[in-house]
Amino acid sequence: MTENAGTGIFSMLTGSGPVVLFVLGILIIFSVLSWAIIALKFGSVRKSMQESQDFLDSFFDVQNVDRLFASSENFRNGSLPRVFRAGYIEYSSMRDKTAPAQLRERISLAIKREVNAESKRLTHLVPFLATVGNTAPFIGLFGTVWGIMSSFQNIGLMKSASLAAVAPGISEALIATATGLVAAIPAVMGYNYLTQKIGQLERDLEDFGPDFIDAYLNQ
């Protein structure tokens, strides 16, 4: 944190202390992971929603479950086709189909398991976005506080409180807060978007579970 430190980002980074650099490293890793999760989940959730919608269209069109199961093979990434397939496999595996109560119970259990698995699959890695969104500003703030502490120590050593002595240190320290916000803002936005979409899918899974059971039993 020299007095002659420039105003550029690179010079500010080279002028920062080790703690600030460590904080910046963590925040950059957080940011990279957040963007990777956002990209991954955005693609998978969007595909799942699209395939679920397509499967629902064919579900209302085709009344035969065997044909539905055959068409569900085309929607392997969709959540609703996955649940339907799990229920159909359970239905097919039962030899005694004369006891409807037992049949309904076993199919509903199989559907519930698959809904849980699907929910787990959809929400996988998403909480990390919330963690980044909540902690990154504070981690950045920690770096800033540490940087300001160091800069004040340097001011004491320089025996000068002029703007030229104070400003570079503070500006170097503030880069940590800025990085924290850069990491946190997309993470929070991505988290909100993904939780909203995943919530929609989960509601669809819960709504259409009984419909699937009725379709098997009315076969």
């Binding site: 940011s31 990279v32 992971l33 963007w35 990777a36 999760i37 990209a39 991954l40 998978s44 996988h124």
Partner: peptide, 17 residues
Amino acid sequence: QEQKRFTRWIGIAALGH
């Protein structure tokens, strides 16, 4: 497969940064 895709996206995100 999902891990592979995730790793690929991490690389892309790092390159983007």
